[in-house]
């Protein structure tokens, strides 16, 4: 499935680029990203709890940054697997100077397999659109701060609350 879109960010191109190659920032921006660990030069191991509404799945996999041309272009290659199936693909991000910020053009190709491919046909495009929007919204907030500043608290409290309740539940289940 082809994906493409344009997002307008407020920060300058250099700052946006920095954010895009910073695993800590990426982890905060990728919807449902629970883990993003550097495993080598521009390669990462990731755990993403992806989904919409009550439909969720945990994906484990790798992400790789390629074709890095600061500050105008990079490619992200993802390969992940989870109980609902697999998800892999690559996307090119082109950053352009724009009035008051940066225009990001993205175009990619995503393949899904397993349950999500065979039952979620009418949702996949919408889900991808939504996740892209969430990602760029968070990225915009991140890029609005300076490197080294504390991260913005987009949805932080809700995430923390959920994490905490999940942790409590696990404790209770074990006993």
């Amino acid at each position: 499935m082809k994906l493409e879109g344009i997002h307008q960010l407020d920060a300058p191109r250099e700052r946006v680029y920095q954010c895009l190659v910073d695993p800590e920032v990426l982890q905060r921006c990728i919807p449902g990203c629970e883990r993003l660990e550097k495993t080598g030069d521009n390669t990462f191991a990731a755990t993403i709890r992806a989904g919409v509404g009550s439909i969720k799945g945990v994906f484990n996999g790798t992400a790789r940054l390629e074709d890095l041309r600061e500050p105008e272009h990079l490619r992200i290659v993802v390969d992940s697997k989870g109980a609902p199936g697999f998800l892999k693909g690559s996307g090119d991000l082109d950053l352009e100077h724009a009035e008051n910020g940066t225009k990001v053009n993205y175009s990619g190709d995503v393949q899904v397999g397993g349950t999500i491919a065979s039952v979620g046909q009418r949702m996949i495009q919408g889900t991808a659109k939504m996740m892209a929007t969430q990602f760029f919204t968070s990225l915009n907030a991140e890029a609005g701060t300076q490197a080294g500043e504390p991260p913005p608290q987009h949805g932080f409290f809700r995430t923390a609350l959920r994490w905490f309740s999940g942790w409590l539940r696990n404790i209770f289940r074990k006993h």
Partner: peptide
């Protein structure tokens, strides 16, 4: 094209 069955349920 990847051989995924995209009409996998009676919803599709």
């Amino acid at each position: 094209e990847q051989g995924q069955l995209v009409t996998g349920t009676l919803m599709d």
